[in-house]
Computed example of a mutant assay.
Amino acid sequence: MANYRNGKISADILQITSKIKIPKWPPKSDFPADILKFMKKNATEKQALKLMKTNKYFIREKCPFIYFDDYFVLTQNFVHQTHSTPKAMYYRIEELPNNLGISGTLNVQHENLLSQFISKCIIFDLKCLNFNWLKNVKISYNDFKFLTSSGRLEKLDLGPTNVTSKNGEIIPYESLLDHTPALRRLCLEYNRYLILSQKFIEKICASNLEKFEVFKLPKNFEREAFLAYLAKKKPNLRVLLHFK
Rank of each mutant, 00 (worst) to 15 (best):
G104I: 05
C121E: 06
P97L: 07
N99H: 11
S84L: 04
K127F: 01
Q109I: 13
I59W: 01
Y57H: 05
K127D: 03
T54N: 02
C63S: 04
T54Q: 02
L106C: 11
I93W: 00
F78C: 10
F72M: 06
H83C: 15
L126D: 05
M89H: 09
V73K: 13
S119F: 04
F72C: 00
H110W: 14
Y67N: 03
I123H: 10
H83Q: 13
L126W: 04
Y91Q: 04
Q81G: 05
F117H: 13
T54L: 04
N99V: 02
K87M: 10
Q116F: 07
S119A: 10
H83S: 12
Q116T: 03
S103D: 08
S115Q: 15
I66R: 10
Q116C: 10
R92M: 13
F124W: 09
L106N: 13
R92S: 15
E94F: 08
R60M: 06
G104D: 04
F58T: 01
T82F: 11
F78P: 00
P86H: 10
I118H: 05
H80Q: 11
K127G: 03
M52R: 03
N77H: 12
F117R: 07
Q76P: 06
D70K: 02
T105I: 08
N55A: 06
S84E: 07
A88N: 12
G104M: 08
H80G: 07
K50S: 05
F58E: 04
S119L: 12
L106G: 10
E111N: 15
H80L: 13
N77D: 09
I102H: 09
I93M: 07
V73L: 13
C63E: 10
V108R: 14
Y71W: 06
H110E: 15
T75H: 10
Y71N: 09
Y67H: 00
F78K: 14
L96G: 06
E111K: 15
K120Q: 07
Y57I: 06
N98S: 12
L106E: 09
L100I: 10
I123T: 11
T54W: 01
L113R: 15
L126I: 03
E95L: 07
M52H: 00
I66E: 00
H80N: 13
T82Y: 13
L113T: 14
H83M: 14
P97W: 09
F124R: 15
Q81E: 14
Q76G: 14
